[in-house]
Amino acid sequence: MTELLESVKKIAWDACGAIMEIYQGSIEVTDKSDNSPLTQADLAAHRLIQQRLSGLTPSWPLLSEESDVDEIENRLSWSTFWLIDPLDGTREFINRNGEFTVNIALIHEGNPILGVIAAPVLSTMWYAAKGKGAWRQCSGEPEERIASAAWHPDRLLRIVGSRSHGNDKMTRLLEAMPPCHLQGVGSSLKFCRIAEGAADCYPRPGATCEWDTGAAHILLEEAGGTVLQLDTNTLQAGERLRYNQRDSLINPDFIAFGRGLDEKWRYPGFLNVSVSRAP
């Protein structure tokens, strides 16, 4: 697993290089069928990652945000496969705010067991493998182990949320929480903030795809956190998020917690649930 992780890190850094070549020039934007944006950087990173992973592990299939439908029609029969978002945060890329990432995860029997997240503009990478801990490395510097922080009620709850995807369910959820500070962060960097102890939780009552969360999920778990499904009517945190278990690739609503916060969430009185019930 350690050798495999090193190879995937190299692939992710090279994908960052391909993205930055385009980021530093003109950006051409087209719309997909679901009206989400697509750039030449998404496609360049996808092609590079697909080619390199296929050479590294030819027996494992690959599922990417940019995969063709016919490439993934048999995905529910896959037990081990790569789950890729070649450019997570395309809107942040277009807006040139630097908050976009390359996400590469290895999924085995519905669970992420290896993940790499690379932020091209920040020249920083976060990565983890099952049982090996969570790590961060800035370009040219030694790697350092990271861990999520335990929240204490003496300080504000530090919440990270999407820069580009707010909704009414999120507003109701925030009203139910203890005193908190909300910071808008793009892409899977929200999970990274929690994994390195700079934030406490990331509630996501809204559509995400499995490739948005796979790599970040194993990173946060290895850092001491967890990612659970969330009932946004009752605010109950439920089962652990899993992958390639449904016909749809859309994740259910979920919440990502730092160390031990999932237990506090379930403690009576932590939330003012009444104000956040859906109409």
Rank of each mutant, 00 (worst) to 15 (best):
G258V: 11
S26M: 02
D14W: 02
D88R: 03
L56Y: 06
R47T: 13
L157C: 04
G197W: 04
F254V: 03
T80F: 01
Q236P: 00
T101S: 11
I84M: 01
P112E: 05
N233P: 00
H181V: 13
G166M: 03
A207Q: 10
A128W: 01
M20K: 13
S26G: 04
G133E: 12
V227H: 03
K10E: 14
E109A: 12
S188N: 09
S187P: 07
K169L: 12
S77G: 14
E21Y: 00
I104F: 05
R193C: 08
N251A: 03
S123T: 08
C16L: 05
I49M: 10
I250R: 14
L173S: 00
G166W: 01
D31E: 14
K190S: 05
G197Y: 07
L62C: 11
A119F: 05
L5E: 07
G184E: 07
R240F: 00
V121F: 00
S123K: 15
R75M: 08
S79Y: 03
P178I: 08
T30S: 12
I107W: 02
P252W: 10
Y202M: 10
H181A: 12
I113A: 06
E175V: 01
A176L: 06
G258Y: 09
W151M: 06
K190N: 08
S54Y: 00
H108I: 10
P252F: 09
A207I: 09
I113G: 06
T57P: 00
D68Q: 15
E6G: 13
G55A: 13
E175G: 15
L63R: 12
Q51E: 15
R277Q: 15
T124M: 11
L249V: 07
T30D: 04
D262N: 10
S64M: 06
D212H: 04
S59A: 12
E239I: 03
S33V: 12
K10S: 13
P178V: 09
P120Y: 00
A12N: 03
P179N: 09
P112M: 09
S79C: 02
N103E: 07
R246K: 15
R96E: 02
S123Y: 04
G197T: 07
A195C: 11
S148D: 03
G55R: 13
G225D: 07
R204Q: 15
S7V: 05
E28Y: 02
I22R: 13
R91P: 01
S33W: 00
S26H: 12
A147H: 09
V121A: 12
L4G: 00
E109I: 00
W211Y: 15
G225P: 04
D70P: 00
T171I: 12
R277I: 10
L241M: 10
G260Y: 07
Q245A: 11
A223C: 04
P142M: 01
H217R: 08
T39I: 08
N74K: 11
C138T: 13
P179K: 09
E71Q: 15
Q24T: 10
G184C: 04
P279L: 08
A256F: 07
